[in-house]
């Protein structure tokens, strides 16, 4: 993944903000929180299956990133480093309550700005079914699916972000395709 040079009209480079926080200006950490609060929220929501869980995970990740800020080797790439902390936090969910296996209905989740009242009911059902089945994948399989088909990264970009070879990622994805196909065709056969 290329290192984003995040420049905002109103603010400083990420690297400068990180350095300022490390130098003692703790209040400026809020700039990073505001910048990245929503950037990886969709990833967290799709990985964890609910908005509440995503909120918790992103909050925890920001706090942990602050605690470990001195270990951020490349402050200019705070975004990438923060993503890895969030990722670890998402993966850690499975070690606790087993929430990841739960079938979570996202229907009542005010997940996003409402976009399309005209979406067909069929597609809405399919969307929910797909999300449910994603939660039945292993976290690693779900992650590659989310990064490729929801975050719309290429395999190369995914490899740059989370490590591993493109070939290994493809294998993981293809196993995910198999499992999705298996579960969804079985479900279709039942209906």
């Amino acid at each position: 993944m290329e290192r984003p040079r995040v420049v905002r009209e109103d603010g400083a480079l990420d690297g400068d903000v990180v350095r300022a926080v490390l130098a003692g200006d703790v209040d400026r950490y809020a700039e990073l929180v505001q910048r990245y609060r929503d950037k990886y929220a969709r990833y967290a929501a799709r990985m964890l299956g609910s908005l509440d869980a995503a909120d918790d995970a992103v909050q925890d990740a920001f706090i942990r990133a602050y605690e470990q800020l001195a270990q951020c080797r490349d402050p200019a790439n705070f975004a990438g480093w923060f993503f890895l902390i969030l990722r670890n936090r998402c993966f850690a969910e499975r070690r606790s309550s087993g929430r990841l296996g739960k079938r979570t209905s996202l229907e009542s989740d005010p997940v996003a700005a409402p976009d399309d009242a005209g979406r067909r009911l069929e597609d809405e059902e399919l969307r929910q079914r797909l999300q449910r089945e994603l939660m039945e994948l292993t976290p690693e399989q779900r992650e590659v699916f989310v990064l490729k088909h929801i975050e719309e990264l290429s395999y190369e970009e995914i490899a740059a972000r989370i490590g591993g070879s493109v070939a290994a990622l493809k294998m993981r994805m293809h196993r995910a395709y198999d499992r999705l196909r298996e579960r969804l065709t079985r479900e279709e056969a039942r209906t």
């Binding site: 609060r37 909050q59 700005a113 929801i150």
Partner: peptide, 25 residues
């Protein structure tokens, strides 16, 4: 199936900022 993947933006509440900064401070 792929087209059905939920790509809608997710926005977390600004309350998160306050909670993080409270813990950080």
């Amino acid at each position: 199936l792929l087209a059905a993947a939920d790509r809608r933006d997710v926005r977390l509440g600004a309350g998160l900022d306050a909670r993080v900064m409270a813990a950080v401070r």
